[in-house]
Structure formats: C-alpha cells, structure tokens
C-alpha cells in the first residue's frame, strides 16, 4: 500500500515537473529574486549593486516624476477600457442582427487583432502623420502633448476591440430569444429591450472584458515605447515604460524594480475592485 502510494505520487510528479521547472525559472525565481534587486542600487550594467535597504522604496515617495507615469497609465487605461468596450459592444450588437454582410463584417472587425502591436502602431503613425493632415488638415495628433494619449488609445481600440467583440457576441447569443419575444408583446421598444434585458443578462462578459482590458492597459509598455518612445517630452511615459527606462536608460534598475512592485500593487487592487463591482451586478440566468 505504502509503496503504491509513493509510486503514485512519483508518477503524479512526472506530470507536474516540466511545468514547475518552466514556471519556477521564468516566473517564481524572477519574482522573488526581484526583491534582492529592489534592495540594492544596481544600475543594470555592472554585475551587481550594493545593498541599500529600503531606500528605493522610500525614494518612490520623494520622486517628483512618479505621479506622471501613474497618471498617464491610469488615464490611458480608463480611456482604452471605456472605448474598447463601447465599440466592441456596438459591433457585437450590430453583427448579431440578421443582415447580409454580417459574416464579413465580423471578420473585418476581428482582423486587426492578428497584427502585432508594432505593425498596428506603424500603420497608425503613418495615418496620423501623413493621411489625416492630408484629409482633414490637422496636425499629427500623436506628436502633441495634449492628444498623444487619445491618439494612442485609438490605435489599441482598433487593434483590440475584436477580442472583446467576440466575447460579447458569445454572451449575446446565449440570451434566450423568448425573452425578447415576450418583451415585444409587452410593448417594450428596442432601447428598453437593450437596457432592461440584454445588458443585465450579459453582465458577466462586462466583468471579464473590463477587468482584463483595464489591468492589461495599465501595464502597457510596448505601445508607448514603439508609438512615441514616451514623448513628446515624457507625456506618454507609462508606468511600464518608466520601469523599462529605469533599467535600460536611467541606469537605476534597483529603483525600477521597487517601482515594479508598487505597480503590481496598483494592478492587483484595481483588478480586485473592478471585478467585485461588476460581479455584484451580474444576474443569474
């Protein structure tokens, strides 16, 4: 019996070990060894830094530049989450109607999701720099401090709302059609049906989409690095990009890592808050 049990747990381990190896070296070890870095003044170049205790964490509160990246990330995350979900919901409501062309529309709206962020940004930078000035006579919106965040948001709404749309379509098609029929009989118009039946019944998909969009937009690094490099004049240096710059540009990797943990705290708190708010409003079907 005993031997059998040992044999069983051994064979169970063979299933887990490959996963745990990858997970350990790629996630757990960096996550915990990061504290070692955050307690030093490592510059990111020399082999290692000196132990400076909690100084990096204390310095965060004296960093005059710290508010800006947080503000930028939160502003972008709010805009991006709002517009991705608004546009995705409109698209999903549209293509779930019966009309000729809805299949091809679904495909077109989903197409940009297959592009890498680099490609999407490159195309839009050209549109902003050359095409929009030509058609509307406006100046490049991504090169101006006041419009850089909305301009970056438009890129990710175009590139990302296909995923949210697919999730909304799945939720919409699970709403029983009898409910619409009986509401129609009762004389409810389209707006009523949308706000009183459809939206409450697909609340679960709001929870998932909004939570995922918000937390992932908070940690947007590549977008701003590629689209603007953080400019003009630092006006699009997001949290993630600020951490990246501390490693590769400012040579303050220890400080960057302390920031990374603060950043994780912000992401986790906002994720928990958002999902609790929306979970409460979910209706059981």
């Amino acid at each position: 019996m005993r031997i059998n049990q040992i044999k069983k747990s051994l064979s169970n381990s063979t299933f887990l070990i490959p996963t745990l190896l990858f997970f350990f070296f790629a996630v757990m070890y960096p996550f915990f060894s990061g504290f070692n870095i955050a307690f030093t003044n490592w510059d990111g170049i020399s082999p290692k830094g000196e132990f400076i205790g909690l100084n990096n964490f204390i310095n965060i509160f004296h960093d005059p530049d710290i508010i800006r990246p947080i503000r930028i990330s939160v502003e972008y995350a709010l805009l991006n989450t709002f517009f991705i979900n608004l546009v995705a919901l409109i698209l999903a409501l549209g293509v779930t109607n019966a009309y000729r062309g809805r299949t091809i529309h679904r495909m077109i709206f989903f197409m940009p999701t297959a592009l890498s962020s680099v490609l999407a940004i490159f195309i839009w930078n050209y549109i902003y720099g050359e095409v929009l000035p030509e058609i509307f006579g406006i100046s490049n919106p991504i090169a101006s401090m006041s419009t850089v965040i909305p301009a970056a948001t438009l890129i990710t709404v175009w590139g990302g709302c296909g995923v949210a749309m697919v999730i909304y379509i799945a939720a919409l098609s699970s709403v029983p059609t009898e409910m619409y029929e009986s509401a129609k009989v009762d004389g409810a118009n389209a707006m009523h049906r949308l706000f009183k039946i459809t939206l409450p019944l697909i609340m679960a998909s709001f929870t998932i989409n909004i939570t995922i969009n918000f937390t992932s937009s908070l940690s947007s690094t590549g977008l701003f690095l590629v689209a603007t490099g953080g400019g003009p004049a630092g006006s699009s240096e997001s949290m993630g990009l600020y951490i990246y710059n501390n490693l590769f540009i400012y040579n303050r990797a220890g400080y960057g890592q302390a920031l990374a943990y603060l950043f994780l705290l912000i992401v986790v708190i906002s994720g928990v808050v958002l999902s609790t708010i929306f979970r409460k409003r979910e209706v059981e079907m």
Binding site: L16, F23, F25, A26, V27, Y29, P30, F31, S33, G34, N36, I37, W42, G44, T215, S216, L218, S219, T221, M239, G240, I243, Y244, N246, L247, A253, G256, Q257, A260, Y261, F263, L264, V267, V268, G271
Partner: peptide, 24 residues
Amino acid sequence: FWEKIFLAAIMLPFEVIMIPTYKF
C-alpha cells in the same frame, strides 16, 4: 495550492519581473 498559484500568475504583468528576468 498550485491551481491558485497559476490562477494568480495569469494576472502578473511581465513588467513586474522584467528587470530580474533580464538579470537572471
């Protein structure tokens, strides 16, 4: 325990472990 750990790790942004991963 492992199920919970993996679930939590889904939400972990790469930026949090970017510097230690690079160093490692």
